[in-house]
Simulated scan of single mutants.
Amino acid sequence: MISIALLALSVAGAGACVSSAAYTSRVQQANPVSTGRIVTVNGHGVNVLTAGTAGPPVLMIHGASANAREFSWTLAPRLESEFRVLMADRPGHGYSQRFDGASALGAQAAQMAGVLDQLAPGEKAVIVGHSFGGAVALRLALDRPDLVEGLVLSAPVSHDWGGGGQAWYNGLAAAPLVGPVFTQLVPTVGPAQVRAGIDSVFDPAPVPENYFENSAIGLLFRPPNFRANAQDVRTLEGELASQSKRYGELTVPIVVFSGSRDTVISPKLHVGELKKQVPVELVILPDEGHMPHHAHGGDVANAIRRLATGGESR
């Protein structure tokens, strides 16, 4: 029997569908899919933004609650004169298609590998990953080392963290029955809440001007995208518990940029553990939070250049 609470949520969700559709239309007009290209990988579309037309390939993988536009105004402009920069939406984010099993890191890495197979065939790329994207980048290097020249990771998530730290709304959004209804409510409150909370992600560094608009954070609050993000986050710890056992297999150079005052993740529990398993060049940034590739974009770009030209990590 459907509970009274669930029935009330269903009624509210039905009423929210109209506002949700209107929100989706507005945010997609502001951030059109036409700015990228759709590459079909394993039967599913992957949206890829590109910059630069010559030079070695660089593939950039965004974190949770984000999309490929995170890099289009931060790192890509620093590299596009020397590299072919590929910025891919992960499955269910931005304009990439979601599919059953897409939360698995292996599945996400396979989609990223397919992008390289099609857009940079026969070449190795430097893989850039931020936060959740760092976990996908590591999996790509494990599963397809033939595609990877090196890894440059910004505040990466790499290991399970012992439970906790999950936002309550991700549990609701990921739930099989309640989730589709709950996510219809998200456009009415989500954008304002995130705008108010952006400071904590960058803290103690300042939030760049127009960050919300430039990174197209609004795309997250389309109901299917919000649900996909919640499923990814809810699945991540179990995925990492398994994946992290394989890190000893990694042979590519790895550079990690880590904010010393990151409060979104614990560097000690992630890159600290990664360093115990594999050589890592760790760049610790004082007075930096979870977004090192913004204020320290020049340093990140230099690390990419070095690995792309065969420079080893220290």
Rank of each mutant, 00 (worst) to 15 (best):
A125D: 14
D89H: 10
S103C: 00
A113Y: 08
E123K: 15
Q97N: 12
L119W: 11
G129M: 06
A104L: 08
D89P: 06
V128F: 15
Q108W: 10
R90S: 14
Q97C: 06
K124T: 15
A107N: 14
F99L: 03
A107Q: 12
G94P: 07
A104C: 01
Q97H: 14
G94Q: 10
A110W: 08
I127A: 04
V126N: 12
A88S: 13
A125E: 13
G106R: 13
F99K: 09
A102R: 01
A88L: 11
A110H: 11
V128E: 10
Q118Y: 06
M87C: 13
G129D: 07
G94H: 12
A120E: 08
P91E: 04
G114Q: 02
A109H: 07
A110F: 08
Q108N: 05
S96D: 13
D117E: 14
F99S: 09
G94V: 06
L116M: 11
Q118H: 14
I127L: 06
A107F: 05
A113R: 04
F83A: 01
K124P: 07
R84Q: 12
L119C: 03
D100Y: 02
A120K: 05
V115R: 07
G94Y: 12
V126A: 11
G101W: 14
A107K: 07
H130G: 07
G92P: 10
S103P: 01
Q108M: 15
Q111K: 05
R98Y: 15
G129K: 03
G114H: 03
V85K: 04
F83G: 00
G129Q: 06
A125F: 15
S96G: 12
A113L: 02
M112H: 08
M112T: 00
P91M: 09
G114P: 01
